[in-house]
Design a protein around this nucleic acid. Structure first.
Lengths: 233, 233
DNA sequence: TCGGACCATATTTTCGAAAATACTAGCTAT
DNA sequence: ATAGCTAGTATTTTCGAAAATATGGTCCGA
């Protein structure tokens, strides 16, 4: 069986469609495909090397995640950004993340504590190595995501975790949007450390308060430095 | 242009795929396609008269909504039910619905009040007409859905409304599951009336409390009367 | 008897062509 | 001039065939 040529595309799933979904999500979240960009099939076909139908399946999945906007009979485009959407995503994240942190702190066992501590440790290592532009570093992004994921992982609800993941991606897109205009990232390392400590010491109220501030501050910075990109056009 | 033959399928959207998605969702929510049922393409092809790819697109969309379960390379099946899933859906609904009711009560204007009152009125009319098995009556289902939708419609967050809608469908499936085993529906009419009054009089705390009880009681009844169908197989 | 390899069949997944629909530009009539 | 129509082009949407993969049964050797 010819192996590499075909398999090389399937890094993130057994099917090509799942793989394309993953790659497209990545491109959209990092604004490699900018908000509002029309997603024409010939272009995507060229770029991803898949057929109409496979691409369509991926776009349908991403539409449900709020990253793509389907206009019936008139194709797809990258979901536009707006001030309103940023506010909605931020509020929804706070609502859900706060609840999940509480539950995780209540239910988290030893493995949960270990996961929180070790993902933060990795994050800090990466930040030490290259403290410049975190969002530019794919490794930092993954470590950052995994730390926040670990914090809520013991909540016990796959349903809410999946909603949370969706909102996280939508928020991350806004972070990328503002990354190029932000003068210097604030001290996230300290915030993460504080959150971890509150969580491990089972201080739910403090953890919740820190997380809410963390999320809202990030969103405020997006509005501040990328505000001119929102609601444009 | 030949009109009826083709258009007759497209009741709920411009594209066939959107239409099939809608019809499949309906079948799954009402348990016409029972939980866990394998969704084979030849069968669906026969039943819905669409091609592989179109069906695949619909199934992908429903997978994202939590109504279909995709097993890569091994096809799709109706999402299974379980006690755990019921609990998760119920908890998530309470979390979100409570928040949206608060926001709607805070922001709702005259149009919102009118929508709440008139959708409840319609619901009661239908209940008077045929007070027997509400869930069997498609009109009651629609009216019921629209009343609850109206209650939260002024919350101001399309993002949260769409998450709410998804969870509502998943919960409705459980209601249908237990409908055949439930001796007699409890007095929902009274509950709806009370919720409406609390909402209109802007008594947020009471509305929230009533809604939470409403949701949890419904879920408890499902567990009570359809418990034997959960976690089976 | 049992486990594993192999083949035949059933099913899903992917593809590119064909049909349907939207868009654009140029024309006509008012 | 301009609104409305029409034809031609661009793009999406749908289809069924073909490829890839899983499933189930049979045979073989231990």
């Amino acid at each position: 069986m010819p192996e590499t040529a075909i398999r090389s595309r399937k890094e993130f799933g057994k099917t090509i469609a799942a793989d394309i979904t993953h790659r497209l999500r990545e491109e959209i979240v990092t604004c490699g495909l900018p908000p509002g960009e029309p997603l024409r099939f010939d272009v995507l076909r060229e770029r991803f090397g898949a057929s109409f139908t496979t691409l369509r399946e991926a776009l349908t999945a991403l539409t449900a995640e709020g990253l793509v906007d389907a206009q019936e009979q008139r194709g797809f485009r990258v979901a536009p950004v707006s001030h309103q959407d940023l506010v909605e995503v931020t509020d929804a994240r706070v609502l859900i993340e706060v609840e999940l942190i509480r539950r995780s702190i209540e239910k988290g066992d030893d493995d949960w504590e270990i996961a929180v501590i070790s993902t933060l440790h990795r994050l800090k290592r990466i930040e030490q190595r290259d403290p410049e532009h975190p969002l530019r570093d794919p490794e930092w992004k993954i470590a950052h995501r995994q730390f926040h994921q670990a914090l809520v992982s013991a909540c016990g609800s796959a349903t809410l975790l999946s909603i949370r993941a969706e909102l996280f991606d939508r928020a991350e897109r806004y972070r990328h949007l503002s990354a190029n205009f932000r003068p210097r990232p604030r001290d996230k390392a300290g915030e993460h450390q504080a959150i971890m400590q509150a969580a491990i010491s089972r201080n739910a109220d403090q953890a919740v308060q820190l997380i809410e501030t963390h999320i809202r501050t990030t969103a405020d910075n997006v509005a501040k430095y990328a505000g001119h990109l929102l609601d444009a056009e």
